[in-house]
Design a protein around this nucleic acid. Structure first.
Length: 315
DNA sequence: AAGACGAAAGTGGTTGA
DNA sequence: TCAACAACTTTCGTCTT
């Protein structure tokens, strides 16, 4: 079992290659049923058959009930994940419950409705979305929500005259932020290959037309990710969180770039918890300059009276 | 030699006339 | 559309360890 897995992952004869960049550095996301390219983030294989039980069962009775029934409906696929033709049911439907039958008819209705039009547009846009989500390591829920909103945007004719990529990218930016796992505009631009300017424009446009209320990203939402990237402990993270909270209470943050604040808070917290990182390191992972960290750092230390605490660490 | 600090000039985006 | 503006970056010299 274990042997097979390493075999398949490492050195089989017909080794998989990424069609995008020819890299052979692929990773197997078992839970998602996908194979990803670690180099460019392309999803090479998806919809791999997962024949394990769908949900955990706690009783014997439960175990018997949870036979595989296919994926749940999803916006992520242009056909809601129902990619086969749904037939008329050859007279066997009376065997199942009314609820099941109703569900069956509902699915067929959706299926037919969705496969008729919009199809091509959505299919293409959603594959781009797929790529973005995997490259940016975003949660399923973000994926799902963007797909939903994109479909709405298509329905309202908002995409006409604009590139699908820009709309998709803008939605990813918005939704990621809304779900408290923001990505910086830089990161998004990087992953999508679009200019920041264009994303920004599409972003404002989409936010207005779909009236998503847009709140500025909060510094603390960046903490877990950046702390993780720098291998900082939970204590540091907690400390940084406190610093940000106090700063916000004292109204020191309005108008400041959230990433800069997060960076400075992490830097200070790391020093206090004796896991010091250089300004350079923090600057690089967060994506701001040292200068910005210093500026925020200075403000925070002064206003929150941390100078003394910091000096004690010096000794 | 590496890191921290800060001054000064430059950049891109927002705002308001 | 334009200019003013704040936040942020780039660059570079100095100080500290």
């Amino acid at each position: 079992m274990a042997e097979q897995e390493t075999e398949a992952g490492e050195a089989s004869e017909d080794q998989l290659q990424c069609p995008g960049c020819s890299s052979t550095d692929l990773s197997n996301h078992d839970s998602g049923g996908e194979v990803l390219c670690n180099c460019c983030g392309l999803v090479i294989d998806e919809n791999m058959v997962d024949d394990s039980p769908e949900w955990r069962a706690f009783t014997q009775e439960g175990k018997e009930k949870k036979a595989r029934a296919g994926e749940p409906l999803t916006y992520k696929k242009h056909d809601m994940g129902v990619s086969t033709e749904i037939g008329k049911g050859s007279g066997e439907l009376y065997k199942v419950s009314g609820r099941k039958r109703a569900q069956y008819y509902r699915m067929r209705k959706w299926h037919n409705r969705l496969t008729k039009s919009k199809d091509r547009n959505l299919g293409f846009a959603l594959s781009e979305l797929n790529r973005l989500v995997s490259q940016l390591n975003l949660a399923e829920s973000v994926h799902e929500e963007v797909a939903r909103l994109y479909e709405k945007a298509v329905d309202e004719g908002l995409v006409r005259g604009r590139s699908m990529e820009s709309i998709i990218t803008a939605l990813v930016y918005t939704v990621a932020r809304k779900q408290n796992t923001p990505r910086t505009l830089d990161e998004i631009a990087d992953a999508s290959g679009l200019e920041k300017r264009k994303i920004g424009r599409a972003y404002r446009y989409a936010a207005r037309e779909l009236d998503l209320d847009i709140m500025p990203a909060r510094p603390k939402d960046y903490l877990p990710r950046f702390a993780g990237e720098m291998r900082l402990s939970g204590e540091v993270q907690a400390r940084a969180r406190k610093i940000i909270k106090r700063a916000r209470d004292d109204d020191l943050l309005s108008g400041k770039g959230p990433t800069g604040v997060a960076a400075a808070a992490l830097y200070i917290a790391a020093v206090l918890e004796e896991e010091k990182r250089t300004q350079r390191e923090v600057a690089d992972t967060v994506g701001v300059t040292e200068v910005t960290i210093r500026n925020r750092y200075k403000e925070l230390v002064e206003e929150l009276g941390l100078a003394q605490t910091l000096e004690e660490k010096d000794r």
